[in-house]
Design a protein around this nucleic acid. Structure first.
Lengths: 271, 271
DNA sequence: GTTTAGGATTGAATCTTAGCGAATATTGCG
DNA sequence: CGCAATATTCGCTAAGATTCAATCCTAAAC
């Protein structure tokens, strides 16, 4: 049997039963453990499976782990969690909000699961799945073309949907922010969506950890002044923060206890 | 059992009941307390849970959780898998297909992950997430309002999207089929979507396990003649099958080996 | 058409490591 | 103080990594 054929079979088996033991595969494919291990290593390289002592687990099935295993792993990040926590206080019951596709915002979405009377519009399938289990949150999805690298929906259908709604708050995930150049992102399609969301919202809240500052990326989205509130972590250079405050933005530094809870409480009362 | 598998089970239990005692886990997973503790330590490291004396508490939110999608997937697995396998053979490279939201079709979607040159349109966020990782499958999502009980998108946005596309094949998940009454489903909104998908497709393929036969539900979708190919499992009453064949449908019984592979091969060559 | 060198793939042999359980010391909690 | 859960250590087993020789396929040279 050809190696490719064998690996295909392993995939098949994994799709059907989610996990296999190495010995089981030896048995079934009539090759030695060494070969199986080589195959598993190759398939792990391709991202098809995750190896574990004695066998492997499929990565391609979400029945495998919780809905978003990868997202869980990525959310290890303490900064993201703090930013999400700070952002949560801006979301009030009864609001209609938009959640962009980003890992930090996904973290926020998880925190919103037990809210009541909340309307969430999003272009992130991952967020839709996460909020699927929430009884109190009404969810709408923009639809559109799935971008494989950023896991967001964009294009014709997404634009059409966004052109006909109004939002209380737009939560934006910023991937590059430079006080002078403005906000930018990797793709035109994404930039387009962000602009439309911003236009539809009364208040624009951007989430950006310290790694996003001073960067410029391919597609220009808009000047920093388009943002009303920016939430970041304490690792951000104070110069950036001051510059943004001078530009009129309300900047929240998540994690630096006093300021955060204080400012956000004021805001909560205003609304 | 693989270590990863065991840890997955712990996650499952935690999602279901929010807390577990270590001894409970020992009991259920048939391993010693030492192993359980190691697992809990690992999962705590990953941020999945918080340990406390005698057990652990989930970090995932607690209140108002709907049953997880996984739980649904677990029911009647084998039949669904066989149906999905039979259906897979009708999906050819280069096709543009629609996948409705249903657990059986989700099973099919999982099998399509490795395909190349396939265009999938769907109203199921779960399927979008599943195909997110697939390099060879282009995915589009209709968007719309998320229905919490059926995990599908429907409504204005979904309809608009569907009104302007053409499909090679529509894969439909049927929740009630009666040879005389026709196809029906639980909600008007879903029925509407199914009708629009049918209209847009050149070929309509319906997936229905034996439990769906002879049932009638709230919203009428259309007569059985609207379907071109019906795939079911071997548990279905032959009377139903004959009646449908008389009505002009091509009926595939998944699992009954000969018929299945034979018929589908013929079909594959035709296309 | 045959031959032979090169590369790839597999299997066998060896050594290394990871995971589990058992025993013992330690820590919390009542 | 006593009980039960936890941490720690150690040894055993089985799985994994590594290396090397054998085989097979390919392709170029004769």
């Amino acid at each position: 049997m050809l190696a490719e054929e064998r690996r295909f079979q392993i995939r098949e088996i994994l799709t059907a039963q989610r996990t296999v033991s190495a010995s089981e595969l030896c048995d079934q494919l009539k090759v030695t453990a060494a070969t199986i291990r080589r195959d598993l290593a190759a398939l792990e390289q391709e991202g098809v499976l995750v190896r574990s002592h004695g066998g492997a687990v499929s990565r391609m099935s979400s029945t495998n782990f919780q809905p978003t295993y990868d997202a869980l792993l990525r959310s290890e990040n303490e900064e993201k969690r703090q930013i999400a926590r700070a952002a949560e206080q801006f979301v009030l019951d009864g609001d209609t909000i938009f959640l962009e596709s980003s890992t930090t915002i996904f973290e926020l979405a998880r925190r919103l699961v037990h809210r009541h009377r909340l309307m969430v519009v999003t272009n992130s399938p991952t967020i839709v799945c996460e909020l699927q289990r929430s009884a109190g949150v009404t969810v709408m999805c923009t639809g559109g073309d799935l971008m494989k690298d950023t896991f967001c929906l964009s294009g014709e259908w997404a634009q059409r949907a966004l052109s006909e709604i109004r939002l209380d708050k737009a939560i934006l995930g910023v991937s590059a922010i430079d006080p002078k150049y403005g906000i930018s992102t990797a793709h035109h399609a994404e930039a387009q969506i962000t602009r439309m969301v911003s236009r539809a919202a009364k208040t624009r809240i951007a989430l950006a950890d310290h790694t996003k500052f001073g960067r410029q990326r391919f597609a220009f989205v808009g000047p920093v002044k388009d943002i009303d509130i920016l939430i970041t972590d304490s690792g951000t250079d104070p110069d950036y923060i001051n510059e943004l405050r001078d530009a009129g933005l309300q900047v929240i530094v998540a994690g630096s206890a006093g300021v955060k809870s204080n400012e956000s409480r004021i805001f909560t009362q205003q609304s």
